[in-house]
Amino acid sequence: MKRLWAAVLMMAVGCAPLDVERRTERGPLLRTWSQEKALNERIPFATTQVQWPRLTLAFSSSDICRTEQHGEYAEDIISMHGNTGAAAEVSSGGVLAVLGGTLLVGRSLFSDTPNRSAIDEQGRYGASSRDVATGWGLGLLIVGVPAVVAGIVQVSRSGETRETRKRAELLSLREVPCEPKRVDGVVELAGGPGPQPPPRLTLNGALVLTADEIQRLSFSGLALDGTPVTLEEEDLDRLETFRTCATLLATPVDPQALAGEARSRPDRLRMKRELARGCTTLPGAPAQPLLEAIEGALGSTAL
């Protein structure tokens, strides 16, 4: 019988639920480290060099190297255990237990005489007041004590626990060409509006285009042995500037025509001036006479 009561009490207490609220707080940065690896995906690249009136496209095959920057943080996982009903459970259980205990302790104060005013179907008198008080006392104790114990356990288990662990995080990722190797092959100048120029062979990993040639060629992209060639932004800009200057500097400087244009279309001439300034960045490009003539034409118009 005692084991049965103990089992009932354990179940009542053990099954008491606890609310758990978890939150994560990031701690300080403990260390950082870099990790580099090649993706083994070789792709053709091209760089540009200008020595007016020649543009040299240097071709290479490079791997893609990925550089990962990792950081390790301390991370605190804070668990808040609690039960909002625990205090109420202790309170109500306590009242019931005290009431039941009082009835049991004071049971001798009740009459032990059976209730002779009623005889049941089996011919028995009604229970004495003492028996009724004992039954109610036990019943209230059975309900109240587990509630008190469960409530106390819940209150004692409530609180905050902190667990610290390390957490790694990817901070940055950078992919750059690496391990370049000079390559030769057939270069296709493709993508222009006009007829596609004939393919050309590189020599020592390079293809040289003159300003006269590039005026006639119509292309927007490069391919080496059928594979699209990647140019970095700086090289693309240089290629486009060379192409623009090849057209701009091919025409002889005519101060009178520029003066007329300064009067009729000054905005267009100002734009041409900006282009001529860009040409001065190309080594050896004879842009200075044109720039001075444009400045002169615009200056005389302003006067």
């Binding site: 059976p114 209730n115 002779r116 005889i119 049941d120 089996q122 011919g123 028995r124 008198y125 009604g126 229970a127 004495s128 028996d131 009724v132 004992t134 039954g135 109610w136 036990l138 019943g139």
Partner: peptide, 22 residues
């Protein structure tokens, strides 16, 4: 005893005379 006493516990057997008089 004790659980049934919560609601309707019975006392001792009533004597035959008590049953008859009831």
């Amino acid at each position: 005893w004790p659980l049934v006493c919560l609601i309707a516990c019975s006392g001792p057997d009533a004597p035959d005379a008590a049953v008859c008089r009831d």
